[in-house]
Nucleic acid binder design. Sequence first.
DNA 1: TTTTGTACCAACCAAATGGTTAAACCAACT
DNA 2: AGTTGGTTTAACCATTTGGTTGGTACAAAA
Lengths: 200, 200
Amino acid sequence: MEEKELNTEERIIQAAEKILLKEGYAGARMQQIADEAQINKAMLHYYYKSKEKLMEKIFSKKFNEFIPKVAEVIQSGATFEVVLRYYIDNYLDLLEKNPYLPLFLIDTMHRNPEFINQIPELPGKVFVAGIEQQIAQHKLPPIKPYHLLLNIIGLCVFPVLARPIFKKVFQLTDEEYQIILKERKEEVYHFILDAVKNRE
Amino acid sequence: MEEKELNTEERIIQAAEKILLKEGYAGARMQQIADEAQINKAMLHYYYKSKEKLMEKIFSKKFNEFIPKVAEVIQSGATFEVVLRYYIDNYLDLLEKNPYLPLFLIDTMHRNPEFINQIPELPGKVFVAGIEQQIAQHKLPPIKPYHLLLNIIGLCVFPVLARPIFKKVFQLTDEEYQIILKERKEEVYHFILDAVKNRE
DNA sequence: TTTTGTACCAACCAAATGGTTAAACCAACT
DNA sequence: AGTTGGTTTAACCATTTGGTTGGTACAAAA
């Protein structure tokens, strides 16, 4: 409710997040970020030498918020059902709170790939190994790990990305679309489970 | 192979498509488009009064290329399997030829929603009615049409959008990712069919 | 032959934009 | 009181950017 009294640096980060996520790197203006942080434009450059440095900071921060730390969970021995629920619930909650996040990351990685390089290596192979292990133990039907992951994440993320197109094509209000998104937790969970079970 | 001798307007459209799709509205530069079309920047404004008008043209053109005209097919009485194959094959072919298209449309609709308004109404309701009819005739198990459509399109489109992220996380080469995309026609088709069948 | 209209361009312009400077402010130490 | 060092600002700067101007070239119409 009440605006916390944040120090300048925190206000800059908050403002930069808001503006960069909404407008993208090319569309965001340093002045806009300064206004949002209620500081002078020169202050921005005092704390962050350049727009690029600021973007680096926000991008890596958001990237790390988005990439889930579930590699361990998949190896925890839990059933696929449990892991899937955990995944989907976490992702959809995150997406509900951060509707601009996927577009921001995807857009940045496509159009400003230079920002990817500062990201450290990620344990993708671990996830693949985890899935393959579950398949070997017959806890999962044979499916290529990449495809399974693309399916799970795509089914979660796409509705957030496609919101404007679907709203337009089906002439939905924001409230109606919100309901659809709420329904997704069950829909995606059962859809994936049904697809995977039927493969056995 | 050989560069056709196109007239100026065609060259402008081609150039604008290339640059706008790749860079987005905010990132694209009129000079860049002029260079690509091998004309003077003033020529751009001779044919298209402003960047906005040019974007309007390209956006509506691309939007109409992307939104499929399958509403009739779904009502054609064909089985769900046939319609699904048709959908998926068409979409994935289109996406393979136009990898920048989904990001361009999604990005534009999120960040420049003013361009949506010039798009005429679309027969989304017809699709919904078609699906509901198939469900009533027990040709399809009960599933909310919006969800079915989100699932189908999401599973097709997301891998194209997520390419950079997946390449990074799993350290894939372009060739490796290309193979994954090729596999998708079968993967998506069976995944959806299995999920839907299991619902009955 | 003259007029007219379309295609085209070099040079230009005003505004916007990322970034800098030099000085002021201010709390903490000496 | 005076110095120091981080913080803040108004004013400024160089470049980029979308867009304009005034004019040329040229072919078709009159």
